[in-house]
């Protein structure tokens, strides 16, 4: 017994693998470095480096006549963002992103709440799959499918007619900034498609935030005399704000960068994403495209600082 204990506790380092294991155990910093160097190289050089290169190109000069890019630094592209035509694009995209984020949050919250607090086991798994399943299907196919659903004589139109709401729809479609000639060529239609596509990105973070809420907090609230709506306003909602903020960062930035939905659904007129696409593709004005990519980055930074100032991350 004693002998076997001894041989088990005092095991000398035999092979090189043993010695390496012992070395890593003795020097945790070396271990951490080995673990982090590959992802840091990837993130630093390939991801961050290429992003900076891209933004740097936003300072290059594009010659309209020769259609050539020369590496002469200029601020013209950035200044051009404030021209009315470009400024309109930014405003159009921004207001859509805000509207989509708000609507997604409103739609996602009840679903997330139900998932987090009222489902267990198989029902929870079912909801996870149901929420994520649309994400498995091709994004372009879904966007195209929506153009058919919303087209004149499509399912949406038929449904509205069946409900006898056709005049109401016409009224809504006649509102400038919201409407268009049909659902599929209206801002409203584009908004519906965006909300549909990005909704899972809002549901899951809110669900995760609500899941983390200890039941005893809600019991404590009720115990102290709070009615259910008071518990909701005072405890549940404030503590789910980090989740809503995380979700809205997804919906906000994804809408800002999208270039396919704006082409397929809604009235003519560029979005930031489609403008970048056209500038670097058809026109070949890489500097202008790069300048446009700066816009979502700046907008997200502003958005995050507002969210932070509202105290959304205080409870993290």
């Amino acid at each position: 017994m004693e002998a076997s204990l001894k041989s088990r506790t005092r095991q000398p380092a035999h092979g090189p693998l043993h010695r390496l294991a012992n070395l890593l155990y003795r020097k945790p910093n070396l271990y951490l470095a080995l673990l982090l160097v590959p992802p840091l190289l990837w993130f630093g050089a390939i991801y961050f480096g290429s992003l900076l290169t891209l933004l740097w190109q936003g300072l290059y000069t594009f010659d309209d006549y020769s259609m050539m890019v020369t590496p002469e630094l200029t601020l013209d592209n950035l200044i051009a963002l404030f021209r009315p035509a470009n400024y309109d694009i930014i405003l159009r995209t921004l207001s859509m992103a805000i509207a989509v984020s708000l609507a997604s949050a409103l739609l996602a919250f009840p679903i997330a709440y139900y998932m987090a607090r009222h489902t267990t086991g198989k029902t929870k798994a079912f909801f996870y799959i149901a929420v994520m399943m649309p994400m498995w299907a091709s994004y372009i196919v879904k966007a195209y499918a929506w153009t058919l659903l919303l087209a004149k004589g499509g399912v949406a139109q038929w449904f509205v007619d069946q409900l006898g709401l056709a005049p109401t729809l016409q009224l809504i479609l006649s509102i400038p900034g919201v409407g268009g000639s049909t659902l599929s060529t209206s801002h409203l239609g584009r908004f519906l498609v965006f909300v549909y596509i990005w909704l899972p990105f809002m549901i899951l973070p809110i669900q995760a935030a609500l899941e983390r809420l200890p039941p005893s907090l809600l019991q404590a609230s009720a115990d102290l005399g709070a009615r259910p709506w008071q518990t909701f306003v005072q405890v549940i909602l404030p503590l789910s704000i980090p989740g809503i903020a995380a979700g809205s960062i997804f919906t906000f930035s994804l809408t800002l960068g999208d270039f396919i939905v704006p082409q397929l659904v809604g009235p003519p007129g560029f979005f930031i994403g489609s403008m970048v696409y056209v500038q670097q593709g058809a026109v070949g004005n890489m500097p202008m495209a790069a300048a446009f990519t700066l816009v979502p980055i700046v907008l997200i930074a502003i958005y995050l600082s507002i969210v932070k100032r509202l105290g959304a991350f205080d409870a993290l």
Partner: peptide, 14 residues
């Protein structure tokens, strides 16, 4: 008309 002190205290973190 009863109040509870919880095992995990259940203080509101926010």
């Amino acid at each position: 008309d009863v109040n509870t002190v919880f095992q995990d205290y259940a203080l509101f973190p926010h």
